[in-house]
């Protein structure tokens, strides 16, 4: 039996292509005492991986960091029992070998009525990122309004729904196509969504929320962060979770928002965060999210690409915004 692993062939300038990756196929290593072999079921492809292509993944080396969910198929390590569903950070490979106490890996509690893919989306880092942003960073209060950029994306779409669960007031999203606007409002229950191609984002948001919003969650940066700054009202809060707009050209970040001074003038708080520093909130998040997934109140928005051979296509797709919700590859 063999396993396939993607490796990085070259560092890209701009949007990556298939040329930047290669596949290696190797025999699955024989079982070693104290290890477990995992057959991956779903691989996560995420915008932040574009940053790993610049620094993090080595040229010539495997794309060996990235979330995956799989099942233990052979084990001599009691903490990874055979048959267990596990989440780990082993990256773009068909299989993974876990050792005792492996960092970033855990046995998943399987919940009835929750699909396996959900452990990489709403119950994975994506959902936790949204939850942490709303609760720990923004401390969203009932009836407070929120603007969420990349609202059809994995984090944004989940954040809008969680905001609703937390009793938010007006929930407004921005996204990049009419179909996504429809999805965000129709499927995910946002009050309003705008297509940023339809006109200046800040103007569109002001038309919907003339008095501004209490909070914003931005995962895009650039013009979207500027719009968040423009529409956040006095004493409002902005959580900055990512900057997909600049990952493809990190050496030349966009001129940061010209309206940044508004942060000072309107006593706004802008806080950056990364979910990996808030993993202790996972149980708290699951307590809210699992029952709402089971009841169907929380929609799992996913775009699933079939087959290991299409990991790179899926990754480039997520950078282009082809996905709605979480982009996953099913093996």
């Amino acid at each position: 039996m063999t396993m396939k692993t993607l490796h990085l062939k070259a560092r890209p300038a701009g949007l990556p292509t298939a040329e930047h990756f290669g596949v290696t196929e190797a025999e699955i290593p024989p079982p070693v005492a104290g290890t477990a072999l995992v057959e991956n079921i779903y691989l996560s492809v995420d915008p932040y991986m574009r940053e790993l292509m610049d620094a993090g993944w080595e040229v010539g080396g495997p794309c060996d960091s990235g979330r995956a969910v799989g099942r233990v198929v052979a084990s001599s390590e009691p903490s990874w029992p055979e048959g267990a569903l596990v989440s780990h950070g082993g990256g773009w490979s068909t299989h993974a070998v876990l050792t005792a106490g492996q960092a970033g890996a855990r046995v998943l509690r399987e919940h009835e009525g929750v699909p396996v893919s959900a452990y990489l989306s709403v119950l994975g880092g994506t959902g936790l990122t949204a939850y942490v942003g709303l609760t720990e960073i923004l401390r969203l209060q009932p009836d407070e309004s929120i603007f969420i950029s990349a609202a059809a994306g994995a984090v944004g779409g989940t954040a809008g729904q969680i905001a609703r669960l937390l009793g938010a007031g007006q929930v407004i999203g921005s996204t990049g196509s009419a179909a996504k606007v429809k999805h965000v409002v129709g499927d995910l229950g946002f009050d309003h969504a705008v297509n940023y191609h339809d006109g200046p984002l800040a103007d569109q948001l002001h038309a919907i929320a003339p008095e501004g919003v209490h909070t914003s969650l931005d995962g895009v940066g650039g013009d979207h962060l500027a719009a968040a700054i423009a529409v956040t009202r006095e004493f409002g809060r902005i959580a900055w979770v990512g900057a997909i707009s600049q990952y493809n050209d990190a050496a030349n970040p966009p001129a940061a928002p010209r309206n940044l001074y508004r942060v000072a003038d309107y006593s706004i708080t802008l806080t950056g965060y990364q979910v990996r520093h808030h993993l202790h909130l996972r149980d708290q998040a699951e307590a809210l999210l699992v029952p709402n997934v089971q009841s169907g109140r929380l929609r799992i928005a996913e775009t699933i690409v079939e087959g290991f051979d299409h990991v790179v296509d899926a990754f480039i797709g997520v950078l282009r915004g082809d996905n709605t919700g979480k982009m996953l590859v099913r093996l």
Binding site: A256, R258, L260, Y261, R262, D265, Y266, L270, T271
Partner: peptide
């Protein structure tokens, strides 16, 4: 206004908090 800092995304990378406050009434 001048272009804001080009390294603004470090606010995310270093998990910084930037908070405005008023020296005057608004």
């Amino acid at each position: 206004p001048p272009p804001a800092p080009r390294n603004l995304f470090e606010i995310n990378g270093k998990r910084l908090r930037m908070e405005g406050f008023a020296v005057r009434e608004h």
